[in-house]
Design a protein around this nucleic acid. Sequence first.
DNA 1: GACTCGTGGCT
DNA 2: TAGCCAAGAGT
Length: 350
Amino acid sequence: MRDDTTIIGADLLEWYDVHARDLPWRISPAARAAGVRPDPYRVWLSEIMLQQTTVAAVKDYFARFTARWPDVAALAAAPDAEVMGEWAGLGYYARARNLLKCARAVVAEHGGHFPEDHDALLCLPGVGPYTAAAISAIAFDQPEVVMDGNVERVMSRLFDIHTPLPAAKPELKARAGELTPTQRPGDHAQAVMDLGATICTPKSPACGICPLRDPCAARRAGTAPELPKKTPKKPKPIRHGYLYIGQRTDGALLLETRPDKGLLGGMLGFPGSDWSEAPQPAPPAPADWQPLGGEVRHTFTHFHLVLTVFHSELPMDTRPAHGHFVDKHAFRPSDLPTVMRKAFNLWRGT
DNA sequence: GACTCGTGGCT
DNA sequence: TAGCCAAGAGT
């Protein structure tokens, strides 16, 4: 039967066959039709990187990761510090910690192959409802309902749903489920996301060239640009902190590997105070610490941070209370998360 | 359901 | 400029 949802699905796939984005981790719809299957490892890696992260930001990281670790076994065997360093700058570092846990679990518990079963995928570290469904759909062509920000936006507009997020999620998922076909479910999932990324965009949606402009209820009602509704966000407080860049006489830098839990967990950084309204100075070793001119300003998801950065030369016999010295030639600023790299650049004058 | 958890680009 | 936004997961 050709009900409305079937027509929408067909129009979407027809559009996708022509307008699918060419992405490094993707099999084109033509190749897919010819029987080429995506590499589950690359699908998984891309989906983890793409969580709350733009395609543009992911591309270079994906290329470096796959060049350095071509398969899940290679990644599983990598030292933690190398993976965290390669992830530095991409953000949400729990993803990198879970990435390694997941790779090692796939090797240890699944013989180095990603499980095809949705529930088994959901048990893997860092794989939640979205990613499990995405891997099932894209890598294994299973008719799972893939719900991400794009799908939420497209569904809320297609059906003119004004219930604010996140309360609207169950209804939006139900609508998405009705549209999910049994034929080419993987391409369908990617088609909805491509539509959301290129046509049904958050601001100024290109309704005039949308393949779903006829059935779209929000287009008809003129409400597309204001959907989906969202519950208002809290204002971000300002926190302050002190950071200490110590350089030993031989050029080695005093750094610390941050604890796995919490902000920037598992990442390399300069030692410092807590980040709060009124932080206590916390030099990692007694020295003549001097403040750098200027401050480091950085905004995280839920607060603004202002760091006062101190620097000092440290004698060769320094035994720091916190952190460890990293040889001048072994240190790569690119191993630092962005806020720490800002402090490094302030010190070096860039 | 409410928080925590990064970053860079765009308006 | 300041806020909004991106293929969410874990607690």
